[in-house]
Design a protein around this nucleic acid. Sequence first.
DNA 1: GTGAAAGCGCTAACAT
DNA 2: ATGTTAGCGCTTTCAC
Lengths: 345, 345
Amino acid sequence: MKPPAAPRRVTIVDVARHAQVSTTAVSKVLRNAYGASPEMRAKVRRAIDELGYRPLAAARALRGRTYTIGVMLPDIRNPFFPEILDGVTGCLGDTEYQVLLGPGCNGEKEETRVTEAMIDRGMDGLVLVAPVSSRVRLEHIASVVPTVVVGRHGRSPAYDTVTNDDVAGAALVVGHLAGLGHRRIAHIEHHETDPTRSAEMPNARRADGYRQAMRDLGLAEEIDVVSTSYTQRGGHQGAQELLARPERPTAVFAGADIVAMGVLEAVAEAGLSVPDDLSVAGYDNTTFSALGPISLTSVDQSGREMGRNAARLLLERITDRSKPSVQVTLSPELVARRSTLPPPA
Amino acid sequence: MKPPAAPRRVTIVDVARHAQVSTTAVSKVLRNAYGASPEMRAKVRRAIDELGYRPLAAARALRGRTYTIGVMLPDIRNPFFPEILDGVTGCLGDTEYQVLLGPGCNGEKEETRVTEAMIDRGMDGLVLVAPVSSRVRLEHIASVVPTVVVGRHGRSPAYDTVTNDDVAGAALVVGHLAGLGHRRIAHIEHHETDPTRSAEMPNARRADGYRQAMRDLGLAEEIDVVSTSYTQRGGHQGAQELLARPERPTAVFAGADIVAMGVLEAVAEAGLSVPDDLSVAGYDNTTFSALGPISLTSVDQSGREMGRNAARLLLERITDRSKPSVQVTLSPELVARRSTLPPPA
DNA sequence: GTGAAAGCGCTAACAT
DNA sequence: ATGTTAGCGCTTTCAC
């Protein structure tokens, strides 16, 4: 069984010939550009339909747009990111733009590879979700192609940002737990080495927010932070460490839902139960947190809304590359569920 | 604050001039093509490094390869798909190829949009995961660009396939439950309308495997199938229906883990518990099934291995487009966890 | 309003 | 072994 040969692609020349006009005319119709009469447009449209013509993005790239938006997600497993993606595609759905994603990239090296690949493929704009690259690198990217950074603080003239107020979000969780009567509230954070990123990354902000809120509530001495990573594995390790403490915390604020998943796993392994032995809260309000057997208290930062904003800002910047940069900050909301209760007496 | 202007891109001409050679020479070095002396190669390599040159994929697309592989995933939320993706990227990591994903697409229309977009962008090969498009459409795609179909049965001369033996997988689950003493074992399937797809889609195979296994075990009269969809919602609805039966099943085989999630949700809502009142098993062995509070019995179809195979086959087909098509079938394995126990006495 | 023609950055015949 | 050159499919001056 041999596969059939590839059919030749219909080009703009075929359309022009079929419609008895020039390729210029076809190009103008395609782009709704100025300088084509209604009759001309109709003629060309008909030829396009009859031949089933679609412009080759690669060829367009050499002269103009590719009508492609690249979205870089750090971790495809984190159920929060699809929310952002939905927002982006939702906003771009009615436009000619097509969204393409990079594969999940862990770390700076992979991130560079993916962003370079997107630039090399002539993408018209980039949405970078929680990038870990240096500021210089981000500004370089933004100087080459319109860019919106989602989920990372730090204003730059080169790119727009969309974030949620992570400090406030962390305070919501700590306030909720303290309100239930907890005092020994621990936090599992994503370990950060780079000082610049410390100031800009959401994980660092959440940790700061946690510390600040603990202090404000007079619980400064109970501050207990374990540094692992924002993955299920990281949550598992962090929880193991916390459960081994001589005096166990009564509540854990995991920096992300995916971290909380790992915590739940470790707690079950230790023969303990949530929330009877330990209250657990996450961040992101992913679809899994709502699941019956999980029912995780979490913070909703409305990823959909973030994605929508990112897409909107990107389209604006593609239209006018020199407009001043914009920073959008959304307010998080607490969603209390069954994984948090007053501490055991 | 105004963003800086875009720097001009380094081209092959710049490299050629800087290295004092022809652009042909540079092109040859880039592609490791025949006809360049070691000294020439060294000179060109140095110029490339000094100038930080990277070939523009869009320009390459017009003449040859883009070194881009497109992966289409039907639903970015289903935690099974990242496994496949890991396998693909793992296999392609050492090559020059870059993987780009389409946004999750539900339904035939979106699927067409994404595959067309990938073709228009000159991708060198496509991996289609559990596509729902018609057979004709798939063969058309494959005639235009090397294609591997993952998670859908049905051999075609035009494309390679990678699947797992869904019939055997379903039999593993039924055998496991029957071995525990269950007789009233129900199944929640994904509703299929199209007759061609009925034969090719994994969901249909699993339902067939369930029926066959029930018959083989002398449980033909207990066969009980509810048709919804492979989503959390579908599982929720299916479970509600089953729980309302005058004689409730003692075990439910959900066609996918994501379906089982919905079942767990519905069971909890009904004030029942798993596995005391009802045993539940899924399919896919996603990371969530291993989670402590869930601990779902499932079938591992090794998505990673599927992805690896898909990437390998794709590279082979890119090298030789007219080689006969290959079908790879992997064997599923049962992973028993705490969600399945003997039925209540 | 319309079309001829010059490229965009790269590859591949085809010389030399 | 190396360079010259003609395109790939499209957009965009710039004539008419």
